[in-house]
Design a protein around this nucleic acid. Structure first.
Lengths: 407, 407
DNA sequence: GTTTGTTCGTAAGGTTTACTAACAAACGTG
DNA sequence: CACGTTTGTTAGTAAACCTTACGAACAAAC
């Protein structure tokens, strides 16, 4: 009973439910809402499975061919789906007319405001492929100046779009509420900035704004789609995005994933900018790591120099030790989260040259040592393969998901 | 747009969503499913608001009076709702006919298998009020013997029920999957025990089985119903129940909340039965605490003795220190979870004489010290008011929720 | 005592939605 | 070339909720 994920089916004596359904029905549901859901289901099916016939979609969704035809007619009329002509394959019966999401009819604009020095933006295809890219040096701008910079970035991206834009997705640092108000972003000096409303008013397009890590996890989730996923985003700060039960976690105060200032361990640690000792961010944020590495002389990137072998080896060992300790600290903080949520997959996103070696290993080892082995046997910790575009691509997914019900 | 919690509404150019909707539509939705949802909505409204007229329900739900009348007619025919006669109040207009959930027409059977020495069970009213109660000494029974004991308990409870039984709810220790198979419960020696199926076949009633802490949190959630809630259940072991985004968290391996064997801090700790040092359970499980308290001579419960004042005061101080340290350890483990999920409410369940003083204070203090103050300002940590019946009452809620869509 | 306005619950009819049944078109196969 | 298969559409039906309308019952005002 797949639909029980979405609707309660509360007959006395009815089959037992999966417990994934809503505990409290929140409002009425009309037949037209069911139709909207089925529309999204069709788009979802086409988007993830590629070009199909109406009959194929019917078989995959369980809806009848008639209903699919009807839904598809609406979608074609709206320009969201296109007919691609007849299927080539040699099969008995009337040849199928292939249909697909109108992948080339819309572009998406994505913004990544999470980096310290630059605001990044891109025009992408529906699948997240980046067509155009702009970086705008922030130059330390904060408050209204930073907001104006964002608007300028959007304007320039819109000018680069060659076809209609489906919507704008923004990954911002800080705490962002569901209405797209940046409640608090210390680095940018934003407090209660109605970014969604500002951009929507300016562009007259659908705009979605969310926390950068929560946006990034959408890019990751689009690929494998497990029910439980945690993404750790290491950059100027440390943030997390969470998907639990297949849904993004927002948090009671809209601050889910703000894990950077949780204290690690019980043995002190470096003094953090927030005043506490041993915050996760004080251990593993990028600036701190690079500074530490520089201090031991193992320069980041290529450590090739004129030094002799011994020095090189010693430097490499010192470098590994620093990264291993940082990875260990991340594992210490994650262990309770992994245990409590019984997570199956954790993804690391950030500079690969820092995270992808000793750091990664230490985090895995620490997680395994500090959680119950039998329960978390199939826990996977991996590096994100999305590199620096993860927020931009996640922003595209956010728009796609929000506007079409597709991911 | 309250319905967007349950159904996607994916028009291009449609209003911005709350992000609480499903990311991936999981299956088709038919009008009849909408009807089921609305049925549950009516029951929910009546259950939580008490006796109302059809017109009242119409106003509260947003459905028309006609539709409510139709749904209520069905529910009355099935015996789930009853008419109570006319409203007394002096108001203009035709007097309303009050209707309510048939609170006296069904009982629920709840089982709590989480205690070490006894299996507890109860016959409750729909609201969780306990009508009859049975405790069965386990006597160290494990495996099939323990399963037979559960069946015996159910039989005896069914015999005590005076009216039809809506269903059976079971809170079991260990890992329980959504189909009610106890995947693993070391204390009871259960591995892949299909408890739900066995009891359902034996009684021909709807049966719901879940982990004890996940059941307990339903009892707590019924009262305040915030979106995010964490319950820590301290007993022979330590377990947690989680509600995130209004939904119970199950976990990728169905082991969400199994936090007892997560290692606390970075300074070692007592050796745990699982072989690791410093597991949460080794710090704060009830047997360990009582043993420690006994060792310093501050006997649990009344510490009144023949000793002089100084000794008493010293013993009390030692006792407080033990509890404070345990509470601190709990706070250390919870801080990352609270931070990552941005939880608003944490509930402690267990022996109040252990948890409700220094322990509680230390946990709160530690949580505040180790998380970001601004984000978790409105975090509340409180003792459960449900005492020992929390699992039994949660089991009733689980049945109510599963069978009627009501909580 | 009558009138007026309000409220309740129901009845009738319409719209939306997805279903079943049936069919024409188009193709491969024997 | 006849036949079976597959596709997509047409036609009709059932379910679910809506709007509109109405009788019944009551309070308040006259």
């Amino acid at each position: 009973m797949a639909h029980s994920d979405l609707l309660t089916v509360p007959f006395a004596g009815a089959p037992i439910f999966t417990r994934s359904r809503a505990l409290r029905p929140t409002g009425k549901v009309l037949p037209e809402h069911a139709r909207s859901h089925n529309r999204a289901l069709v788009l979802q099916t086409l988007y993830s499975s590629g070009a199909r016939s109406r009959a194929d979609v019917s078989r995959e969704t369980g809806l009848t061919r008639v209903t699919i035809s009807d839904l598809v007619a609406d979608l074609i009329a709206e320009g969201l789906v296109v007919e691609l002509g007849q299927r080539e394959a040699a099969r008995p019966g009337k040849p199928a007319t292939l249909i697909d999401v109108a992948r080339d009819a819309f572009q998406i604009i994505g913004l990544d405001l999470s980096e310290h020095e630059v605001f990044r933006g891109a025009v992408t295809a529906l699948d997240g492929t980046i067509a155009e890219r702009i970086e705008l040096a922030r130059g330390g701008a904060t408050g209204e100046a930073a907001a104006l910079l964002v608007e300028q970035l959007v304007d320039r991206l819109l000018a680069l779009a060659t076809i209609p834009v489906l919507g704008i997705g923004v990954g911002s640092p800080g705490v962002v509420d569901p209405l797209g108000v940046v409640r608090s972003a210390p680095n940018l000096g934003w407090v209660d900035l109605p970014l969604q409303a500002r951009l929507a008013a300016r562009t007259e397009l659908p705009v979605h704004v969310a926390n950068d890590a929560n946006v990034a996890i959408l890019a990751e989730h689009g690929e494998t789609a497990p029910g439980e996923l945690l993404l750790i985003k290491v950059g100027h700060g440390v943030g997390a995005g969470l998907i639990v039960g297949g849904r993004p976690v927002i948090g009671g105060g809209f601050a889910a994933g703000e894990i950077g200032h949780v204290v690690v361990g019980t043995d002190g640690g470096p003094r953090c900018a927030c005043g506490k000792d041993g915050c996760l961010e004080a251990w593993v944020a990028e600036p701190r790591l690079t500074a530490q590495l520089a201090a031991v002389g193992a320069s980041r990137g290529s450590s090739v120099g004129a030094g002799d072998g011994d020095t090189d080896a010693a430097a490499a060992a010192a470098r590994d030790e620093i990264l291993r300790e940082a990875g260990r600290r991340l594992g210490i903080v994650l262990a309770p989260v992994v245990g409590a949520l019984n997570l199956t997959e954790v993804v690391l996103s950030g500079p690969a040259d820092l995270l992808d070696g000793a750091f990664h290993e230490a985090t895995v080892d620490t997680l395994r040592q500090r959680t119950m082995a039998e329960l978390n046997r199939d826990l996977r910790l991996r590096m994100s393969e999305q590199a620096e575009d993860i927020v931009l691509r996640g922003a595209a997914v956010m728009v796609l998901s929000g506007q079409l019900g597709v991911s």
